[in-house]
Design a protein around this nucleic acid. Structure first.
Length: 851
RNA sequence: GCCGGGAUGGCGGAACUGGUAGACGCAGCGGACUCAAAAUCCGCCGGUGGCAACACCAUGUGGGUUCGAUUCCCUCUCCCGGCACCA
């Protein structure tokens, strides 16, 4: 046995051992409980970052733990390989996205292997492979025929200089990232998935999803956004024709306080009125400016302009002005709202700004009418509302809705915030939408026998749109239904389509005649899904939609409607950033190149660049990013300390769900711990067994089994940082022992077993070196021995009036009066002569004497 | 702007279901070993006052519930994630 811990050698050995035995290859086995453990697959950006290491280590620890619990565990890996960064890299380096992507995959795969993850590589897939994306296309054609996929116009960011559609990410401060031109909104035809068909179900099912964090379910619930309200019609005349302006409101009780209506700039009333008013046309044009991001739209100054059109209040018959408002969204509800300044903050500000009438109709206190007050939106009894006066929130809504319904001017309605999912992207590096546009037959889905529509892989985009548009051999085709010349759709699919079902495909390696097969029935649903909290809404909601669409298509059992039974959302990995402002130019300095100085208490006082001693300024802590040059490369970490240290550190530093703040010194500490484990085992192997003193044996076993009990509790709730510290506590207990009695042997085996999911290589090596067995991975996970946890005496905390004043040791079988007597004796001086009002006893823990 | 989350020593974090705040580790300080350094090992380590015993203060802010609050409720501040074409 080597005296020194040499991670490089033992990690290579262990990985070879697993590879030769195909240790992580799994197949369906009806006899054992299956466990499908999945981490979100990576985008092949070039090399792994710390977020990947953390994500995949969490997944690997859970995988290995469940294996040791006797389950049939599947942990696959693949590549989310389509997307924008490949096109950017292609433009920068004049390399086709396909080559760039596949080179990255090869490199990152080797990195993942060096980390020793228990992955079944036989199931590897990349979404850019035609063998994968053909099934995107196949399912699309199925949904298209069903009407679950359809075409309509959608709004996009338009760069007028490059004449191209921009991703939100490519819009910087309202301008195109390459041209600097002011971005506009533009409507173009797109394909949509009808996710709203499942809105009700996607919402209702959240209720039973106990394995998901409340926080994520709440975000999804709010995103789907079910609201009950009333659709209300305001009559108006346009060119002598009677028309109805429909609005949706959740506050029909305030209808009698409506003093205006506002429509979106794209609303027919606005467009019509703009024809005869140059000012209004200019305002509508102004609303077109800017991108489509909701965060920006919500922050712009609320502006409006009257259309000159008046509509009729459906109850009072009063004439109300119709305004165009830049805050009204065409995509939500009817693209129009009623304005009730007295009971809506936004309407209030709008009314004050433009001198519109404010009428209070709900009995809220302190209504001043000149300044917005908290509480104006609170529901209450109706006032100044004619026949509705005195009715409360629900009663007034019921009465108003009934009256409107009787006159054909409204009814109760359920409205969803959720919008259908636009999947068309005017980009090259993605899955082609399998549609052929025929002048006589219209949009024809590509027939099954012609799938896949293969993406040509040798194009290099130039930033002015999708190069597929210019590729005649791709575009020109014949109509599958009439045989005449036709054009192929050149839009590709949103990459979220690729990632909405990959987990099902992992179950079916080698299947080339179907999207999924019966093996998916064995493995699905994913028992444990792990990934970043940033995916809490979109990816996870789209996957839930896909699972339903696939089940309803007969691809999976109809009742299997949720893809992920348990979800763990990991926190981000953050790092400090530093910069110098030498000669007026800010230069970001990587934390690895910075030396900090501390005062006597260890507080940081200053920082310098190691290379030249130049003082650097601290910029705080944030996500690792290229722009701030604060990324920590996992590769250098693995090379310096080995995979086990990298794995241990990422588990120990922070609970999986919290952010992790990078610290080089703490990495050092993790390495030191593994060295101590190795050194202890070297001594253990050389030492001779000592006799167990009964008391020593009992105390040590109590200590180790107590830690084990807590550790098992922690690992079951995925609090892996305290699992790591539990392992440290066990080593501390072992090192306190004199010699190596039987209790040490038992404790050491427990230590190696509980540590092995986190640091599998070193545990594999030590298990074999010490002759404990051939393969620690095949050992059963340890449980605490109840006999070891029984104590003869119990320590109680004694409080006087809630303040801790002492401890008292009482025999296990002491009765309550005896405990009270011992406790009172222990804190006699704090009680003094004061009368005892009450004694609170928490069994096994604490006594509080209230005086 | 809207939705969700977070804040505990110099730092990362722990505290089982409301029950000793600071486990485990990092940094720091002191010591051992060494010609010396590294490595390793031992001790100390929230703040204030005190020779000490000990006392008081302390879990972002302000309030509340409770015998007892880091934990539950309300208020505010700051930070982070998402907002539908980044993945």
């Amino acid at each position: 046995m080597q005296d020194r811990y040499d991670p490089r050698a033992i990690e290579a050995d262990a990985q070879k051992f697993w590879a030769e035995r195909r240790s992580f290859h799994v197949t369906e086995d009806k006899a054992r409980r299956k466990f499908y453990c999945l981490s979100m697959f990576p985008y092949p950006s070039g090399k792994l970052h710390m977020g990947h290491v953390r994500n995949y280590t969490i997944g690997d620890v859970l995988t290995r733990h469940h294996r040791m619990r006797g389950m049939n565990v599947l942990q696959p890996m693949g590549w989310d390989a389509f997307g924008l960064p490949a096109e950017n890299a292609a433009m920068a380096n004049k390399v086709p996205p396909a080559k760039w992507t596949r080179d990255n995959i090869a490199y990152m795969k080797q990195q993942l292997k060096s980390l020793g993850f228990a992955l079944d590589w036989d199931r590897e897939l990349a979404t850019c492979d035609a063998s994968y994306y053909r099934w995107n296309q196949w399912l699309f054609t199925r949904l298209f025929r069903k009407g679950l996929a359809y075409k309509k116009t959608g709004v996009v960011n338009w760069d007028p200089a490059d004449q191209t559609v921009l991703a939100n990410e490519q819009v910087i401060d309202g301008r195109g990232w390459r041209t600097g031109a002011l971005v506009e909104k533009r409507e173009i035809p797109m394909y949509f998935f009808r996710i709203t068909h499942y809105a009700e179900e996607l919402l209702a099912a959240l209720e039973g999803m106990d394995g998901w964090p409340e926080q994520v379910k709440l975000m999804q619930k709010n995103w789907i956004g079910r609201s009950e309200g009333v659709r209300i019609g305001f009559e108006y005349a346009l060119e002598n024709q009677k028309k109805i302006l429909w609005v949706f409101t959740t506050r029909a009780d305030t209808l009698m306080g409506a003093t205006f209506c506002a429509v979106a700039a794209e609303h027919p009333i606005a467009l019509h009125a703009a024809k005869s008013s140059p000012q209004l046309a200019a305002f509508v044009e102004e609303c077109r400016r800017g991108g489509v991001q909701e965060a920006d739209l919500a922050k712009i100054e609320k502006k409006g302009m009257p259309t000159g059109v008046f509509c009729t209040h459906p109850i009072s018959g009063e004439k109300l002005p119709v305004w165009v408002g830049n805050y009204v969204l065409m995509g939500y509800g009817e693209g129009a709202v009623m304005g009730v300044p007295a009971h809506d903050e936004r309407d209030f500000a709008f009314a004050l700004k433009y001198g519109l009438k404010i009428v209070q109709v709900i009995d809220v206190k302190d209504f001043s009418g000149t300044q917005w007050r908290e509480g104006y939106v609170e529901p209450g009894r109706c006032i100044h509302s004619g026949k509705y006066d005195g009715l409360d929130f629900q009663a007034s809504i019921d009465a108003i809705a009934a009256d409107l319904k009787a006159r054909g001017l409204g009814e109760k309605q359920v409205q969803w915030r959720l919008r259908d999912w636009g999947i068309s992207r005017q980009r090259y590096w993605g899955c082609p939408v399998p549609i052929i546009h025929c002048p006589s037959c219209g949009d024809v889905p590509v027939p099954d026998q012609d799938l896949p529509v293969v993406l040509p892989e040798d194009l290099v985009p130039d930033g002015t749109g999708n190069p597929l548009n210019k590729l005649a051999s791709f575009v020109n085709t014949t109509c599958p239904s009439c045989g005449r010349p036709a054009k192929r759709e050149t839009d590709t699919m949103d990459t979220f389509v690729d990632s909405s079902w990959y987990f099902a495909r992992f179950a079916c390696p080698g299947q080339d005649t179907a999207m999924v097969d019966e093996r998916a029935r064995y493995w699905m649903a994913v028992d444990q899904y792990i990934g970043g909290i940033e995916h809490a809404i979109l990816h996870l909601l789209y996957s839930r939609f896909f699972q339903r669409a696939m089940a309803d298509e007969g691809l999976m059992p109809k009742e299997l409607r949720e893809p992920f039974t348990n979800l763990l959302t990991q926190g981000m990995v953050l790092a400090e950033s530093y910069y110098t402002d030498a000669d007026g130019r800010r230069e970001w300095v990587n934390p690895a190149d910075v030396a900090v100085e501390r005062d006597a208490k260890g507080k940081i006082t200053s920082a310098k660049r190691i290379r030249d001693g130049a003082p650097v300024a601290y910029d705080g802590i944030g996500t690792m990013s290229k722009s701030k040059n604060n990324g920590v490369d996992p590769q250098s970490l693995i090379e310096k300390y080995g995979a086990d240290t990298a794995r241990f550190y990422t588990m120990f530093a922070s609970p999986p769900t919290h952010t992790l703040e990078w610290s080089d010194e703490s990495v050092e500490g993790s390495f030191r711990f593994l060295k101590r484990v190795w050194a202890y085992c070297v001594k253990f192997k050389a030492g001779s067994a000592a006799a167990d003193a009964e008391s020593l044996r009992k105390a040590t076993r109590y200590e180790i089994h107590s830690v084990l009990r807590q550790l098992n509790y922690d690992i079951d709730k995925h609090q892996l940082n305290t699992v790591a510290s539990g392992a440290m506590k066990i080593l501390n207990a072992l090192e306190r022992l004199e010699g190596f009695p039987e209790a040490a042997r038992e404790g050491l085996q427990i230590l190696l077993k509980v540590l092995s999911p986190i640091t599998p290589h070193i545990c594999h090596a030590l298990w074999r070196e010490l002759g404990f067995g051939e393969d620690i991975m095949r050992e059963a996970w340890p449980d605490p021995d109840p006999a070891a946890l029984v104590q003869d005496e119990i320590d109680y905390v004694v409080q006087v009036s809630g303040k801790t004043r002492g401890n008292v040791r009482v025999p296990r079988d002491a009765d309550q009066p005896a405990i009270e007597r011992l406790a009172a004796e222990a804190v006699k001086k704090y009680i003094g002569g004061k009368p005892v009002r009450r004694v609170v006893i928490v069994p096994g823990k604490l006594i509080n004497i209230v005086v």
